[in-house]
């Protein structure tokens, strides 16, 4: 039952014995989820720090590297991920108001967006591989102006690769909670795993919000 923006706690989920009640378990789980997200931010952030340092050292080289990226594909993927964040948040919203079937569709849409993102990524990667724009010692593009253009593509593949890996992990996690939702394991009183997966998925979106301008719109 829900009134205005709140739903009360009660329901069929049994909380673990060392917690006082389901709410205690929920807020503890939330804190744990946020602590884990901090580690994700820090891990990606280390890459960003490296990127910033070298971008400041070699601005022309980074601009040259960025010129090989298609900003339209990047922008398209940005819209795709924003949409997927919306549908993810809607998935949680629908579970909270008791519309589990709508939630399943929202989660499926999120999965579809993730798949579209990876397909676009696939085209981007194959284009670069075809041209020989590969990281480090595999770099084989003969018309490079900057001497160390290979480093740009090292960053490009590391950052988008790590991000893409997280997209795939996120899709696996969404599939997991989708299946559990279809089995009726979630309701307005208990949906903690969906909340956690949702926050993880928004991190994926968050990273891309910074990756897009940094990689595609530079120079």
């Amino acid at each position: 039952m829900s009134t205005d923006n709140h739903v009360t706690t009660a329901g069929k989920h049994h909380h673990a014995h060392h917690f006082k009640d389901a709410w205690h378990e929920f807020i503890s789980a939330k804190e744990g989820i946020w602590l884990f997200m901090v580690t994700e931010i820090l891990m990606f952030g280390g890459l960003f720090v490296g990127y910033f340092i070298y971008h400041m050292k070699y601005p022309e080289m980074f601009a040259e590297g960025a010129s090989f990226l298609d900003w339209r594909m990047g922008a398209f993927n940005t819209f795709v991920l924003i949409g997927s964040s919306l549908t993810m948040a809607l998935g949680i919203h629908y579970i909270q108001v008791g519309k589990n079937k709508a939630a399943s569709w929202a989660l499926i849409t999120t999965l579809a967006c993730g798949a579209i993102f990876m397909v676009v990524k696939y085209f981007e990667y194959t284009h670069k591989i075809h041209l020989g724009l590969l990281p480090g010692k595999f770099f084989a593009y003969p018309e490079a102006v900057s001497q160390n253009l290979a480093m740009y593509f090292g960053f490009y593949f590391c950052m988008t690769g790590l991000h893409g890996t997280h997209v795939l992990i996120g899709m696996a996690l969404i599939t997991w909670v989708l299946i559990r939702n279809m089995r009726g394991e979630f309701d307005s009183h208990y949906f903690t795993p969906v909340e956690g997966v949702g926050i993880f998925w928004h991190i994926v979106d968050l990273i891309w919000i910074f990756l897009f301008p940094l990689l595609y719109l530079v120079g």
Binding site: N5, H6, T9, A10, W23, I82, S85, L86, A89, H189
Partner: peptide, 27 residues
């Protein structure tokens, strides 16, 4: 539980749509 602290906040549908539109605008 009659304790009204134990409430899950539901983010309104309109808020989520609004945020999505603003994100697209900023993009």
């Amino acid at each position: 539980g009659q304790n009204h602290n134990h409430d899950h906040f539901v983010i309104p549908f309109k808020t989520l749509m609004n945020v999505c539109l603003w994100l697209c605008f900023y993009t």
